[in-house]
Design a protein around this nucleic acid. Structure first.
Lengths: 237, 237
DNA sequence: GGAATAGTGTCTCTAAGACAATATATG
DNA sequence: CATATATTGTCTTAGAGACACTATTCC
């Protein structure tokens, strides 16, 4: 048996898909794109995660490819971006054996500019319901979305991840609200505030948010703050 | 601008690499393979993670490809196997733009059969030292290994993951020892035992391990036991 | 003052850390 | 008995849960 060479192996299709999450109207929302209508295309007209083929002329690496696709759709250049994983099989794309590399991006909804990338037509946000968006998606994108949501919810139990869904300045109440939206359950106010303030994660802006009721202190994430890991999860109830 | 088609995009190379970990001689060890000596091959004769091209004729999916490569090298068919992530760039393989899907497998060292897959020559275990194996590896495999070790150590802080490095029957002392090897620091005996016994993870075999001193109770993992997640991390010191 | 939201006080509870004490084996 | 390892007891501590209470704004 001779050693396999590069040429001996037919190459799978290689794509990147991005799960772009924001908070809007009190719900977690995913950005979706409509598949082209041409009859040659798979899943014509169906909604799908933004993504597509890796372009080896333009993309230096997979993360760069994900950033490019994100910027094309949203105009955002430096979001929180994390790889969820990769999926590949003979059957997930009718065009042949294909792999996809799935990233999840968390953005403040107000930084999102759907016009920036050209055609805002064929772009929409859909509210997350349970494990998905309550509608069929092209390819195996419902499963990819479910995996991304699982990752985000899992990390929300013990990291500062959801902070990236908020604009630069926010109150502790808003931060707790985002956690509750992601987790789908209420959290204890006192424990939440104690945890966040003890975490060396937030910077007090010294300003107040005027809301018509008692104003709340505004915070922002510390400069270097990547993800902060807490040593305990929130209690499972 | 016309819509890109399948054919318009040159396809990256697609590979799978597997970080196969066992405990041996009181240390965490990684299985390595030697690259072929032919001058046409990249990194001839260097040590690397086991892996290679996805074979779209034989592999139904990426996980199946990882399982195949694992079985070829070790004879093991049902290990603990988890995807670590994927890496892809223009430069990581001199043969061109390539992606790899990295899996980590945890095995009991005594289930590993290096003869099973044919040539045991060019196969070795190397003890983990810090973030790697203290020697150069082919491609970007040192970085891939480091990422896999990070994943395993991270999960060891709050899951039952290291149990999969032990044979079917083991004592609590052995389990704690494995945790300590993976984490590289001692753990409190009482807290460790309380946590493990409260986790509904272990089944008391009712048998004792005879060691020359006081015998210890033997346990095994419960049937359905996948990973158990603890709600607190071990303390960082 | 009433309503609403921000923020604090305080008691309980759980599980980890520390470490001493006891138990069971061998020689 | 001495030694070694297994297993338990118990006190302390950190941080979460529960929830009542105070503070500040607008009307």
């Amino acid at each position: 048996m001779t050693k396999p060479t590069t040429a001996a192996f037919p190459r799978p299709l290689t794509t990147v898909d991005v799960v772009i999450l924001t908070i809007r109207a009190g719900a977690l929302q995913v950005l979706l794109v409509q598949r082209p209508q041409q009859s040659g295309e798979p899943f014509p007209g169906q909604w799908a995660l933004p993504g597509g083929f890796v372009d080896i002329e333009r993309d230096q690496d997979l993360q760069g490819c994900a950033l490019r696709k994100l910027a094309e759709k949203t105009g955002v250049n430096s979001p929180y971006l994390e790889q969820v994983g990769s999926w590949g099989s003979a059957t997930r794309d009718p065009r042949g054996w294909s792999t996809t590399h799935v990233y999840v991006a968390l953005l403040a909804d107000d930084t999102l500019d759907l016009q920036k990338g050209g055609n805002a037509a064929g772009l929409r946000r859909a509210p997350v319901q349970g494990d998905g968006v309550g509608m069929a998606l092209a390819f195996d994108h419902a499963m990819l979305l479910s995996a991304a949501l699982g990752r985000v919810r899992g990390k929300t139990e013990y990291t500062s991840l959801p902070a990236h869904l908020l604009p630069a300045a926010f109150t502790l109440g808003e931060l707790q609200h985002v956690y509750e939206i992601v987790l789908g359950r209420p959290l204890e106010k006192k424990a939440f505030r104690t945890r966040m303030l003890a975490a060396d994660l937030l910077e007090d802006l010294g300003a107040q948010k005027e809301t018509g009721r008692r104003p709340a202190s505004l915070y922002r994430l510390r400069e270097q703050a990547g993800l902060v890991y807490f040593t305990r999860s929130f209690e499972q109830r």
